[in-house]
Write a protein that binds this DNA or RNA. Structure first.
Lengths: 131, 131, 131, 131
DNA sequence: GTGGTCTAGACCACC
DNA sequence: GTGGTCTAGACCACA
């Protein structure tokens, strides 16, 4: 598959996988019911330890992003199946807060930061609902 | 002093200190030339090891947020002394990207996300210039 | 490995390690992608504390000289991955200035000093490009 | 007097004083038999601790750069009075070696480095013997 | 008093 | 196995 890992990053490999699956979902590159490569496929393809992939899948399943069907494989969840995690809002705020703090040191204005957010948003969106 | 550590967080203690110092600077609660508590003061107050505080201070100095003056203590840097790190912009984008992805799963609209950013921004700012 | 520490030197141990790694890179004794001894290996071999080695490695990573890959070890960076630090030039001038001042007291001429620089330069270089 | 200290530098204050006295001698701004300000004068003028100045003067005397005459003050030594320290050559080589290593990472050529040395040399020299 | 360095030894996350 | 974090406690240089 199509993940790129950055060994120099300080983010653990399994986190990078998680992040990229989520990103591809958000971008519409992975759609509900689509099948993900098996742990073995992915691990051999990416030349990393199967345990690492397995850990990423487990965490993705815990977050309700994917489901594994025994003997059939792992699939992207339907939107309706997703647990609406109340912690999600807190996570968003946390990320935004970090951005605002870094923005303070970068010296950009509020308008510029918002513009940046819109840019990032547009880069991301595939067929996500427009509004 | 005024730091609180979250033992449940997976972020290391020294990172939490770094983050909070930066946050307080951004909020205007710490102003240039203001003196931070000494390593010993802070460590005993927070009931953590002096080395941990020291590590946080050293990293903050590396980022140009604070300066340590031998034998006198550590102080918030002047704005002009800050090194304008070009990696800062990348860090902002990264944080925003995370927010956008989480936002996708939370199901909010783009407008709502921007509104959230503005909220977070306003919570943060003290008397920093408005724009 | 191949490091020697000078207990009489007033330079901290971790600085001595840093300096020697950089020197060996410059000499071509350490080449890109080459693996450095693990923290434990090196610390037990040099009979110093693992933390001290770790600190040296972390600083080297900050300078872009080495990269650490989680769970696999630390490696010499590729030349292309090095961050071109603008402060580097200032550091060179600083070292040269010190040399010139000491040279004044030693009573050598300018020509002799330049000759000395060339000597040191040649001792250093292995098969690095000649110019 | 005319020293500028950099509190942000990691070099200790007394080292900075030593360095500047030596630099001014090399530049010819301080000449043999010239009187230096007293410890008290200098310390009050620079707003630093007298002990710090005192330590600097002691080290300068140990190196034979200055002499103190009880009750009369401290003076720059005559050239002939200087002890020709055999360790001086080693110190020069050490400084040059550092420069060469940093030069390697900066990516300059040998010629450029030599040119830089000449620049630094010329900035320095006042009426030092030309050759 | 301040911060910086080093040691010894523990625990953890990651691979 | 790897490096990263944290603690406890010591010693030192500097101001």
């Amino acid at each position: 598959m199509f993940f790129h890992i950055d060994t120099k990053s300080n983010a653990p490999l399994y986190e990078q996988i998680i992040q990229q699956v989520k990103e591809m979902c958000a971008k519409g590159l992975l759609t509900p019911d689509e099948r993900l490569p098996s742990v073995r496929e992915l691990s051999s393809h990416m030349v990393i330890n199967p345990n690492t992939v397995s850990k990423a899948y487990q965490e993705l399943e815990r977050q309700g992003i994917i489901v594994t069907v025994r003997g059939r494989g792992t699939f992207i969840s339907k939107k309706t199946d997703r647990t609406s995690d109340p912690g999600r809002l807190k996570a968003i705020r946390e990320s935004l807060k970090e951005a605002v703090i870094e923005n303070y040191y970068a010296g950009y204005s509020k308008k510029e930061l918002i513009k940046l957010l819109e840019e990032v948003y547009e880069e991301m969106e595939g067929k996500t609902d427009e509004n």
